[in-house]
């Protein structure tokens, strides 16, 4: 336990001492926030307003902003919790390139403990960035249209926590195989560019064809995005109903922004989404630790 604590402390200190690694982690949510608030917000606004007008419903600016804002910040957090983990989880590669890994592995420390320490320190640093991004997102909603309850906020924090754990576990499994800074950079770029699409953050999965929908339903990240959407938008949808929106219209909007996800035609409930995310986290951590143990045994 002391070894794990010492290694995690070392890794975390190194993360914050490396300004490049720290700022590159911070920059992902910042870029997404700027991108969403300056460009995508207007597109989403117009799309919502025209859809509601076509349905014959009138909507206040506050509810519209709350709805669009909720969609934007849920997308932002869904992407950044995972991509920030990839940007933060570089120390295991840096230790290989610098040779520090040799200095660690000549000690009696178990490889599983060493691997888990990278996971814990990355989780810690990614959580700091993710919670900062969540705080900024909540402040943004407070300004444009706040319809969240304390329970919603608590569940959002849980979602961010779980999604960050998931992103860290996923990045640990992938980065485990990388040995150079170039490979790490390439993987980071691919994940930053692609993850938003496959988790339904950049474009709702409901817009995709059935085949692609079925494929994406196998990816746990999509349920993470859906959880965030549900909790960020629950209050707004409740307010729409209070303002007399027909249930069908509200349900249609919920469908269109992936609040309801299906797995081969069967609706996935919120509880099941949590179960999928938690099981994925445990599975990925298990795989990662096993890979570390096998790597250790191969050396002996």
């Amino acid at each position: 336990m002391n070894e794990l604590f010492a290694l995690t402390k070392r890794n975390t200190k190194l993360y914050f001492k490396d300004k490049g690694m720290f700022f590159s982690s911070l920059i992902t949510p910042v870029i997404l926030l700027v991108l969403y608030s300056t460009f995508l917000k207007k597109v989403y606004d117009d799309s919502f307003r025209s859809a509601l007008l076509a349905a014959g419903a009138d909507i206040s600016d506050s509810v519209l902003n709350g709805c669009v804002g909720g969609q934007l910040v849920s997308s932002l957090l869904a992407v950044s919790c995972v991509t920030v983990a990839f940007c933060s989880n570089l120390l295991m590669i840096k230790d290989k390139t610098s040779g520090a890994i040799h200095d660690l592995t000549i000690t009696p420390v178990r490889f599983g403990v060493l691997g888990f320490s990278y996971y814990l320190s990355t989780l810690f640093s990614t959580l700091i960035v993710s919670f900062c991004a969540a705080l900024v997102s909540l402040l943004y909603l407070a300004v444009v249209g706040w319809y969240l309850t304390a329970a919603d906020v608590a569940l959002l924090i849980l979602d961010v926590f779980l999604l960050t754990m998931f992103g860290t576990a996923l990045s640990s499994c992938i980065n485990f195989f990388l040995t150079t800074d170039g490979q790490a950079s390439a993987v980071g770029t691919i994940v930053s560019a692609g993850y938003g699409f496959i988790c339904g953050a950049y474009m709702p999965i409901s817009n995709f064809g059935n085949g692609l929908k079925n494929v994406l339903s196998f990816l746990p990240g999509t349920y993470g995005t859906s959880l965030l959407r549900n909790h960020f938008l629950r209050g707004t949808f409740a307010e729409m109903k209070n303002q007399g929106f027909p249930n069908e219209v509200v349900e249609a909007i919920r469908e269109s922004v992936d609040c309801n996800l299906e797995f081969f035609g069967t609706k996935v409930e919120i509880g099941a989404m949590y179960l999928i995310i938690c099981a994925s986290i445990l599975l990925l951590i298990g795989i990662y630790i096993t890979m570390n143990i096998i790597a250790g045994k191969k050396r002996k």
Partner: peptide, 19 residues
């Protein structure tokens, strides 16, 4: 192969804990 960004004490402390 010590960590260049950490102080001498931090480096030695982290390695000593592994023993």
């Amino acid at each position: 192969v010590l960590d260049k960004d950490l102080t001498v004490k931090d480096n030695l402390e982290s390695r000593a804990a592994l023993y």
